[in-house]
């Protein structure tokens, strides 16, 4: 699988650019992935990225977008737990783009 150099470290990614070994994840990798996805990381983005990492640690999967939306609504409030808010942050799909930045695998069932 392809290797990329991120902040001086060789990191393995899959064909679609997702991090292969999520234990390698750090903020440099997140920033690199964000540039790849043309996302300017703000605190609001980080909130979702960190939420995803917590979700993964608890359940060992990346959630489907509808599950993510519902779970974010529960934790961060309805003004954030909706498609409009999340798609504004991650225009090409919150599950897909935010997972990539969070160093998680592509969500199960993602096509």
């Amino acid at each position: 699988m392809p290797m990329v150099n991120i902040a001086g470290k060789e990191v393995e990614v899959d064909e679609e650019g997702y991090l292969v070994d999520l234990s390698q994840w750090n903020e440099d990798i997140a920033k690199y992935m964000a540039v790849e996805e043309k996302v300017d990381l703000t605190d609001s983005h980080w909130e979702v990225v960190n939420f995803l990492r917590e979700y993964y640690a608890e359940y060992q999967i990346a959630p489907a977008v509808r599950v993510l939306t519902k779970a974010i609504g529960k934790k961060l409030g309805p003004e954030k737990g909706n498609n409009k808010y999340l798609y504004e942050l991650f225009p090409y799909g919150p599950a897909k783009q935010a997972c990539k930045i969070a160093g998680l695998p592509k969500p199960t069932g993602c096509i």
């Binding site: 608890e58 060992q60 999967i61 959630p63 489907a64 599950v67 519902k70 779970a71």
Partner: peptide
């Protein structure tokens, strides 16, 4: 190997 027993707890959210 991955511990997917935790994932059964995510089913409720699905």
């Amino acid at each position: 190997v991955k511990d997917f027993s935790k994932t059964y707890r995510a089913l409720e959210g699905y």
